[in-house]
Simulated assay, not measured.
Amino acid sequence: MTKYSITEFLKQTEQVDKGQGLFELETPRMLEINLTDKIWAKAGSMIAYNGKIKFEREGIFEHGIGKVFKKALTGEGTSLMKATGKGKLYLADAGKKITILHLQNDVIFVNGNDLLAFEPSINWDIKLMRRVAGMMAGGLFNVRCEGTGMIAITTHYEPLTLKVTPENPVITDPNATVAWSGSLQPEFQTDITLKTFFGRGSGESIQMRFEGEGFVVVQPFEEVYMNPNS
């Protein structure tokens, strides 16, 4: 058997059950869900499945009328799909790295573009960052996830977690900010000198400032959010 034979390729790339439970990293950029009931996932993230699984787009009033108004207001791209049934479901999002988090009565905020999947036991709500909505293309929004259960988030390349303490606030670029602990409420600040220095768009002039006790997750990549309503 040669190094580049089809047999060797299949051996190197075949699906392997790792016995990790409901959410399992098949590869660093592919999420396997051992579905037995129902999960929520980012619309369009399904790449393959087997078994009997039914996919439905999020019902317009499924999560309450308040969230419908928020989704219409933000024009955001985190449309959800519900997968129900039994089988193996594989999700991915543009080759981004996937991180699984098991919340245990925790609260975490996740950038709306970076939330890949979550269990129905997780309570969630869309939070629009109104103060920055008029300053960036499409504004910026995040999803507040609370409760006990699994969520999967995505990042471009490897994520970095920075600790926030009262003595050491952390300032980030909104386009590189992925998630932060529920104990933090970021404030927005502008930096005219930074904008002038880079000589680019408004992205570098807007910063998120985290003060208090908690953590913030960033990625080595600046995502540009486009408003589909524009």
Rank of each mutant, 00 (worst) to 15 (best):
T2D: 09
Y4E: 11
S5T: 07
T7E: 13
E14N: 14
V16F: 04
G21R: 13
F23Y: 08
E24R: 14
T27P: 00
P28N: 07
R29K: 11
T36D: 12
T36V: 09
N50K: 13
N50H: 08
F55V: 05
R57V: 08
G59W: 00
F61W: 12
E62V: 06
H63G: 04
H63T: 12
I65E: 07
K67G: 04
K70N: 10
K70G: 09
T78N: 15
M81K: 10
M81S: 09
G85T: 06
K88N: 11
L89C: 09
L91N: 05
K97W: 00
K97L: 00
I100L: 03
L103M: 11
V110N: 06
N111E: 12
L115K: 08
L115G: 09
E119I: 01
N123L: 12
I126F: 11
K127H: 14
R131W: 12
A133K: 15
G134W: 03
M135F: 03
M135P: 01
G138P: 05
G139L: 01
G139E: 01
E146F: 07
G149W: 02
I151E: 07
H156R: 14
L160W: 11
P166W: 02
P166H: 04
N168S: 07
N168W: 02
P169R: 13
T172R: 11
N175Q: 14
A179H: 06
D191N: 09
T193F: 02
T193V: 02
T196K: 07
F198T: 15
G199V: 08
G201V: 01
F210Q: 07
F210I: 04
F210K: 14
G214H: 08
V216N: 03
P220A: 06
E223L: 10
V224E: 11
M226W: 03
N227I: 03
N227F: 01
N229D: 11
